[in-house]
Computed example of a mutant assay.
Amino acid sequence: MTQPIPLKPTESELEILQILWEKGQCTVREVHEVLEKNKEAGYTTTLKLMQIMAEKGLVIRDTSSKTHIYRALVNQEKTEQHLVSKMIDNVFNGSAARLVMQALGNHSASKDEIDSIKKYLDNLSDK
């Protein structure tokens, strides 16, 4: 069972959570190798961040073997909902429409993504 989000994860913590959500569980080395593909990251920095995340309750560490295995303790969907809600309130003055328009105006959406958005909006308007 996942715990409520204790606080807003930092950008670096979110990068690590994304890896853990995708892979399920990882060693520090495995997380570090994924991080290094996109940016310069020191192994000890990754290790320290993951230790801090364990202290915060964002991840859990299995120490039953020599190599510690980490997995996310917070739910991806709930974390995303929490962060989006905070962003809507803090950045877009409570307007979800402004967030959506800004997101679609700044990033190219594929035809499939636009179709999914239209379908989602149609379902909302049917309620």
Rank of each mutant, 00 (worst) to 15 (best):
T63E: 15
M101W: 04
S116Y: 09
P4W: 06
H68V: 09
V28T: 13
L7G: 12
M87N: 07
L124Y: 15
M87F: 08
K23Y: 11
I16N: 02
A72Y: 01
G105N: 03
Y43K: 03
P6T: 04
E33G: 00
S116M: 11
Y43D: 01
R98K: 13
I16Y: 00
L35F: 06
E30R: 06
N93R: 08
R29F: 13
K23R: 13
V74L: 02
G24R: 05
Q76D: 11
T10K: 14
T46S: 08
S95M: 01
F92A: 01
I88P: 03
V59M: 01
M101V: 10
I16P: 14
H32T: 05
S85P: 11
H32G: 01
T63Q: 15
T46N: 02
P6R: 01
S108T: 14
K78V: 08
I19F: 00
T27R: 09
S125I: 12
S85N: 15
I114G: 04
A96L: 15
N106Y: 15
E30K: 06
A54L: 03
T10G: 10
M50D: 03
V28S: 05
K23E: 09
I114F: 07
A97Q: 13
Y43P: 00
E13A: 07
A96D: 14
P9E: 15
E22F: 03
G42V: 05
P4L: 02
G94V: 04
K8D: 08
K37N: 07
S108H: 14
V91G: 00
W21Q: 08
K119L: 07
M50E: 00
E11D: 15
T10D: 10
Y70D: 07
Q25H: 11
Q51F: 02
V74I: 14
Q18T: 10
I117V: 14
K23D: 09
L35C: 07
E40I: 10
S85M: 15
